[in-house]
């Protein structure tokens, strides 16, 4: 099977500064892949290259089978993207947001109408259908933006810091949606610096100073570092000098 994402010595330099330094990894279809790193470790830059928003300096990568140098437009058609900060238009209603994104991804009118019904019904947010997005609770916003991000059935969905700040139950409902999408074959690529979120991922990579410092299942990483949580793993990797002191 062709991997959903492959990166081979992918590198991005800004002048003298190497933001992403020869990262190599593969993400399988249907996998939930956590992409971790401290602020400034190069996560965002790496993700932009995979999204086709930023041209790599060197190395190879393909997303959904398309090349990140030559086929960026095709990549954009086959991925979904959700960020906690920018996904929805606050001054449009829930229905209008769905309509808008349906239009952007070129879904036919009949399909959009069907999706509006399906999506609002599926989330159980009928009472909010005609409410402005800014007036609905944060938890609903996140579930809605995820549903919208996967509305056009992308092969891969990129989640950028998806669940900060919501209550633990809503957060789990959100992860259940992600599990559902993954069980249907969608590949999930999550960046976060919220460490317990990473424990939900199938495999995680941890970036430190532009390099991938560790890549494995959370369980194996915890074993390898003798840590009780991913937070400890992360701290050991990013603060090696203080380890054991």
């Amino acid at each position: 099977m062709v991997p959903a994402i492959t990166a081979d010595k992918l590198t991005k330099k800004f002048g003298d500064f190497t933001a992403v330094n020869q990262i190599t990894f593969e993400v399988q279809k249907g996998e939930i892949f956590g992409f971790l790193g401290a602020n400034g470790a190069g996560k965002t830059t790496a993700m932009r290259m995979l999204n086709g928003l930023s041209r790599p300096t060197s190395g190879q990568a393909s997303v959904a089978g398309f090349d990140v140098y030559r086929e960026t437009e095709k990549i954009k058609k086959h991925i979904g993207y959700m960020s906690q900060k920018f996904s929805l238009y606050e001054d449009l209603t829930v229905r209008e947001n769905i309509q808008f994104y349906g239009g952007i991804y070129g879904l036919p009118g009949r399909e959009i109408r069907h999706q509006i019904k399906e999506l609002i019904g599926g989330l159980g947010m009928q009472e909010y259908a005609n409410t402005l997005v800014k007036a609905i609770p944060l938890g609903w916003k996140q579930k809605l933006s995820f549903s919208i991000a996967i509305m056009h059935r992308p092969e891969i969905v990129f989640l950028d810091e998806p669940t900060g700040g919501v209550d633990p139950i809503t957060r789990r409902q959100f992860w259940e949606m992600i599990y559902k999408a993954a069980s249907e074959g969608m590949t999930i690529f999550v960046t976060t610096h919220y460490m317990d979120e990473s424990e939900y991922c199938g495999r995680v990579s941890i970036m430190v100073d532009g390099r991938i410092a560790a890549l494995d299942t959370p369980r194996a990483l915890k074993e390898q570092f003798g840590a009780s949580s991913m937070n400890d793993v992360f701290l050991q990797l990013t603060r090696p000098n203080q380890h054991g002191s």
Binding site: P168, E176, A182, D196, E199, Y200
Partner: peptide, 24 residues
Amino acid sequence: NDMYRLIHDLREFESTHSAFPFGE
């Protein structure tokens, strides 16, 4: 092996009070 089905199956289990995903 299957997280998504597991959550739902556990919720239908008769002795279950609650079932929530917690990391792995």
